[in-house]
């Protein structure tokens, strides 16, 4: 479905973010090609794509940091170009490359961010304590930001981004620099924030982590949204199915036969247990099973395997175009 920016009635939608026909041009190249999508409230959208696909530009347009060439971005019912300050009150953004005020303490950094985002002064001390607590910085409140390790700086940046309890939180590589334990804590925090009603868009290259907490996946490739759907639907709608064939006893012929069949790829062979990708509908799958049985292979199990986010992503990227770029 393609939506026209001028004709579309933004007020009729319940989406937290509504993007229509968004075009962004750099001086010598187009970065975003008429991107349109909605982000539902209370969702965590994993924004994925190759380097240079336009993810950061898209996030910056959503955050009212860049002016697009054309199209519209509406956050919480407010047009970003018309109400940039109101948007910033409702939005938190952690950039991939960020800076901190090194000479201020953690408490002062958080307090400044709360004040700059309109948190009333009576609520600020509690907001500082809570943000620091959530990011494991409670015992470092009086430490200068410049003396923090890279991981702790990342945590402070996340704490700053959420201190004013934004409705929409944009995170660009939030786990960068965090150790495994901190990453797990961050994942839990993002889920908690979502449960509290926040909507999140997270851009990251670590797909396994995104899968832990994301509800939706948006794939951006060459400045276009090639996939945007709930994670389970994305797996089901994948153009290629991952199938698992299990034999009663190991048989080296299985892999050989599979390699010779059209539509089969990505064969992972353990002789008795072979996983592979197959581009075909249910009838084609039945024909494939028949072919294996007729070849004398002792097939005891033949079933589709649920694709994970990385599988879906790689398939979409390999196949080039995906959907129509909109949901």
């Amino acid at each position: 479905m393609t939506l026209d920016a001028a004709a579309y009635d933004h007020s009729a939608s319940t989406a937290v973010v509504q993007v229509r026909d968004l075009i962004y041009d750099y001086p010598t190249a187009r970065a975003l090609f008429g991107v349109s999508f909605d982000i539902e409230p209370g969702s965590i959208t994993a924004l994925v794509g190759p380097n240079g696909a336009g993810k950061t530009t898209l996030l910056r347009c959503l955050a009212a940091l860049e002016t697009p060439y054309s199209g519209s971005v509406v956050v919480d019912g407010l047009n970003v170009e018309e109400h940039p300050r109101d948007i910033h009150r409702r939005l938190g953004f952690l950039q991939d490359f960020f800076g901190l005020y090194d000479d201020l303490s953690v408490r002062q950094c958080l307090d400044h961010h709360a004040a700059a985002h309109g948190v009333p002064w009576v609520e600020r001390p509690a907001a500082v304590e809570q943000s620091a607590e959530r990011l494991g910085l409670a015992d470092r409140l009086d430490q200068k930001a410049g003396t923090l390790s890279r991981g702790l700086r990342q945590r402070l940046a996340v704490a700053q981004a959420i201190i004013h309890r934004p409705n929409l939180l944009l995170l660009d590589e939030p786990a960068s620099g965090l150790d495994p334990e901190a990453r797990q804590e961050l994942s839990r925090l993002l889920v908690t924030l979502r449960d509290e009603g926040m909507t999140l868009i997270v851009s990251s290259h670590i797909l396994a982590e995104l899968e832990d907490y994301s509800t939706h996946m948006m794939i951006v490739r060459d400045g276009r949204v090639v996939e945007h759907s709930p994670l389970d639907q994305a797996a089901e709608a994948a153009p290629v199915n991952r199938l698992l064939a299990v034999l009663a006893q190991p048989d080296p012929r299985l892999a050989k036969i599979l390699h010779g069949i059209d539509g089969v790829s990505g064969v992972m062979d353990t002789e008795a247990n072979v996983g592979f990708d197959f581009a075909g509908d249910a009838e084609a799958r039945a024909a494939l099973l028949r072919q294996l049985v007729e070849a004398g292979l002792p097939v005891v199990e033949f079933r589709p395997v649920r694709l994970n986010m990385q599988d879906v992503y790689l398939q979409r990227i390999k196949n080039g175009t995906g959907g129509d770029g909109a949901i």
Partner: peptide
């Protein structure tokens, strides 16, 4: 100085007029 220190975007995103 804020641009060089990468804090300017964060300032631009504050709610200050």
């Amino acid at each position: 100085g804020e641009v060089a220190g990468r804090t300017w975007d964060s300032q631009r995103m504050s709610a200050l007029g």
